[in-house]
Amino acid sequence: MDRTMQSEYFKKALRLPALPAWLSGAAWMAAGLGILALIWTLVALRLNNPVLLPTPTVVLEGFYQLFADGLLLKDVVASLKRVFIGFLIASAIGVPLAMLLAYFVTLRRLILPVVNLIRPIPPIAWIPIAILWFGIGDKPSFFITAIAAFFPIFLNSFFGGISVEDQHLNAARCLGAKKVSLVVRIMFPSALPMIWTGLKIGLGQSWMAVVTAELIAAQSGLGYMIQVSRLNLETSYVLVGMVTIGVLGSLMALALTSVERYVLPWKQK
């Protein structure tokens, strides 16, 4: 159940500020980032070693170079593609499987132990197998991002599914609903808030995993760029990659949170 508690936490942490407070929220964020940049600059100047830690301005310069060159965009697109495809595969398998296991007890007894056995294996441990099976490039990365996204999506959906109210199932049966309708029209929507949380966490996990996968099993993408820049002692490019990952990751989380009201209209105040 640690995942569900975690998901509750994320739900709270990711909530957008209310509209009137929007501007003050932005101001606070700018202040926070400003403090971070200030500390970073001070430490970098004190160290006075661009290989260990370049100043933010040097990193910004590196960002501009990579961006103007088109390299950065190419790597971002490569990484995003891997994240989304892996995430889609994980969702397409995780959500329906979770619904089936939540509804059919026999299937649950059969498959849940297997899932629990595979769950503790971290995505990074799958990389050697992924390379053996799929070689180097997109395919092993799809596999790794899918594995990373699968468990939060599946587990949240599953717990959402089994916590469906008996009363809702009985009410639906008394209105003529059969198995398929019970799963699709009752269990699925009643689990949707949890499924949505799972998707948000899954996307984050998948984003983290893509970098890991690209460090080893790819020749493009932000992870690959970080790895190559480290070997070339281009620390500013390493930091460009890291900042880009951070910014894109938060934007994705923000995007999911901002469409939530359309996915879960009954949950809005």
Binding site: E165, Q167, C174, L175, I186, P189, L192, W266
Partner: peptide, 12 residues
């Protein structure tokens, strides 16, 4: 047809 004590409407 069944009418339950409360909270049996589908909230979604």
């Amino acid at each position: 047809g069944v009418v339950f004590q409360q909270h049996s409407l589908f909230p979604w």
